[in-house]
């Protein structure tokens, strides 16, 4: 007897595929890769790559918000910028801010991290307390600082009064205001650096200290010089760059507490950019400031990237 055989094995589906597009795993993967990347790639183009190009181009035009036409004016915006006293004041203030906040918060963070790591009790307590300012909304805390720094009723001046000193008007004194902002900046940043240093210290194997002691490094300073500092070197550079890049972006405290005043004494780069762009709507001029700002931030990130690559090579 000759029974007709079934055309296909019952265990396999008759349809070759639900997708007629299916031409093997690799092509499918290719299509899928594009399909899954498409939303992100589109948004990246729209919100990051496009805008960064736009800022660059804008800075060479005379365009302002609301204008229907524009002209290429080459470097005119930059010429105006570099001839502007406010800009130089703003750049100088930003540099001073960076030059104070970076070493201040890095050294304090390092010192506190080493003290915390040197003992057993209270480790997580201290870590949490020092980290608290990083977490808390900076705007809210700026307002709190404003209350504390109030010339008549603020905590700081009341304490000084107890000591017999008449405290100044911290936020209205042109000679002081920038340093006060630096202080708040350090207060906010120390915890962040501390945590990075703590994680760095944790990776130093304890047998290295034992070896150092065997080799005659008996004092704490010797051990620091011989083991801690060299091994903490990479993370220190890392922290330095991150802190600098954050310090360059100082804005919140300035906007809330001083608005750049008094008399431009606390004017910083980002705040100048903000006022030009969104208060006076001098769009292309503000774009030129943005390019200067971007130049400094990218310079720093470039150093960091170079460094991160080097670190990868080491491991």
């Amino acid at each position: 007897m000759n029974l007709p055989l079934p055309e296909t094995s019952p265990s396999l589906p008759r349809r070759t595929s639900r997708w007629r597009l299916y031409r093997g795993a690799e092509q499918y993967e290719r299509l899928l890769g594009w399909f899954l990347s498409l939303p992100a790639a589109g948004l990246m183009l729209l919100f990051l790559i496009g805008p960064i190009v736009a800022v660059l181009l804008l800075s060479f035009t005379d365009w302002q918000l609301g204008m229907s036409a524009f002209e290429w004016i080459g470097l005119d915006n930059y010429a105006e910028l570099f001839g502007d006293h406010t800009f130089w004041q703003s750049l100088k203030n930003t540099m001073i801010y960076v030059a104070i906040v970076v070493p201040g918060s890095v050294l304090l963070g390092l010192g506190a991290a080493m003290l915390i790591e040197a003992g057993k009790q209270g480790k997580s307590f201290y870590r949490a307390v020092y980290f608290l300012p990083v977490m808390a909304t900076l705007i809210a805390m700026s307002i709190v600082w404003q209350v504390i720094l109030h010339p008549d009723f603020g905590l700081l001046n009341l304490i000084l009064k107890e000591l017999g000193i008449t405290g100044p008007n911290w936020l209205q004194d042109g000679d002081l205001v920038l340093y006060v902002l630096c202080g708040i900046g350090i207060w906010q940043q120390v915890g962040f650096n501390l945590v990075l240093f703590l994680s760095g210290l944790m990776t130093i194997p304890s047998h290295l200290y034992e070896a150092a002691e065997m080799d005659g490094a008996s004092s704490a300073w010797d051990r620091f010089r011989l083991v801690t500092w060299p091994l903490l070197g990479p993370i220190t550079l890392f922290v330095l760059v991150i802190t600098s890049s954050k310090a360059f972006q100082v804005f919140d405290t300035v906007q809330v507490l001083t608005k750049g005043g008094p008399n431009k004494a606390s004017e910083v780069l980002l705040y100048t950019m903000y006022t030009e762009a969104f208060e006076y709507f001098r769009t292309s001029y503000a774009a030129a400031i943005t390019v200067v700002f971007l130049f400094f931030v990218l310079l720093l990130t470039l150093i960091k990237t170079r460094f991160v690559e080097r670190k990868v090579h080491y491991s």
């Binding site: 890769g33 919100f47 805008p51 800022v55 943005t290 990237t305």
Partner: peptide, 30 residues
């Protein structure tokens, strides 16, 4: 996944990591 343009896309991601949001605030506003 293996697909054409993956390297370019990842390079773009790395580049975009460098952009601080304040720097693109003007075009965003527009």
């Amino acid at each position: 996944l293996r697909f054409k343009g993956k390297k370019t896309l990842f390079a773009a991601v790395l580049f975009c990591l460098l952009i601080p949001p304040q720097a693109v605030s003007i075009p965003w506003y527009l």
